[in-house]
Design a protein around this nucleic acid. Structure first.
Lengths: 223, 223
DNA sequence: GAGTGGTCTAGACCACACG
DNA sequence: GTGTGGTCTAGACCACTCG
């Protein structure tokens, strides 16, 4: 088996996984053995298997070795654009209007994620060519963005450039526009709207945000 | 500047990006220089900068060097579960019902992505504890899955394990249930539903699928 | 042509987790 | 304790692309 390069090694490993040469749930040879078999350095095998592990095709553990998951979960990288750039990329002119910015008590539904202290609550409307594009409903830990005003710069944009985060969750769902939401977004009540919830943590909660997009919006990404 | 390990190198680079030591649009020192400055091997710098590039914080090009993008696009890895596993993970019993499987002409809206020849059109309903969970509406290139029947095994599941793909797109949007859709999913007409469109290519189209979830569904992922 | 990132190698040590 | 992956190093060559 002549292998040259880590991508070839990855492809061969993936072939064996698919061919069940390495059956689901089973352990595969360790890096040193594969390096010897394929005639490459162990670092090359490491790179190949690490890549497959990141894509969800393998599970690796020190001492435990490398295994083929019984239930593979494919992973895709998803590009998360800043709203303003998203609008510009469509050839439209972005607009922004701050709706509210005050300290508030966290709603019960979010309390287990954000804690029960008061947090900064910012709501804002993003516009494309002057028409409503996306409603941003955000809760911010008081310790971040202290003193920063979001009159003209959206919290969305400020956070991307200024906050490191290590953990978070992302959720997509659909909601029907109620009357006030319909009025804000300028759509019919009952319209189906895409909502994206994002939670950001880094040793404690940083921010929770729900973005509600105007009807017809598609959030697309390449894989 | 004492740096130990590629993660420390990455953190220091990220700090410089955020601090505008390396301004947006600007070029950063090359790997050899940073390796000398930080007292690490070039491979370590490479690993650090490659990681930042994958996350969207840097753009790297041979000969052109490494630059800080003017408009950073954050990237997140998104886990794409098999529907059946998704249901099991909720502690529910998955069910599956094939609704149709026939060769059909591609609708105009998809023709530019799939070509204009006839394709295999498969529709199926996924159930959780016997109630509708997700409608799968799929177009398949005739050359894949030839002879495979989807009576009991969903195309969703078969494809994950058996098809390599190199490219694709993913899109989230919301749609309102029309009458037939409401009947299929057992919900009220007009209900807001999350839809996920996924296109898969590998030297030509492989499949296009729209998954329409029952009301209230949230697609979540960690970051 | 030449500069820069991409990758490979051989060897080494370390950290973690399993028994 | 011990096996395995995680990582680092120093050096080398290659591939792409910019000027």
């Amino acid at each position: 088996m002549a292998i040259t390069g880590w991508q070839a090694a990855r492809d061969e490993a993936l072939r064996r996984i698919r061919a069940r040469d390495w059956p689901p749930g089973g352990r595969i040879p360790d890096e040193a053995d594969l390096a010897a078999e394929w005639g490459v350095a162990r670092a090359t095998v490491n790179r190949a298997l690490r890549d497959l592990a990141e894509a969800g095709y393998l599970e690796r553990r020190r001492k435990g070795g490398t295994r083929v998951p019984l239930t593979p979960v494919r992973k895709a990288t998803f590009a998360i654009p800043i709203i303003r750039q998203d609008i510009e990329a469509r050839g439209q002119t972005p607009g922004y209007r701050l709706l509210s910015d005050r300290s508030d008590t966290v709603p019960a539904a979010l309390r287990d994620r954000l804690g029960d202290g008061p947090m900064r609550h910012v709501t804002a409307l993003h516009l494309a060519d002057g028409t409503p594009y996306c409603l941003e409903d955000r809760w911010l830990s008081p310790r971040v963005a202290e003193g920063i005003r979001f009159d003209t710069l959206s919290a969305n944009e400020w956070l991307v450039g200024n906050v490191t985060f290590s953990e978070g969750t992302l959720a997509f769902h659909a909601i029907a526009a109620d009357a006030p939401l319909a009025q804000t977004l300028g759509c019919d009540p009952g319209a189906a709207l895409l909502a994206v919830d994002r939670e950001t943590r880094d040793q404690g909660p940083i921010t929770w945000v729900r973005l509600i997009y105007a009807p017809g919006y598609r959030m697309e990404t390449g894989l």
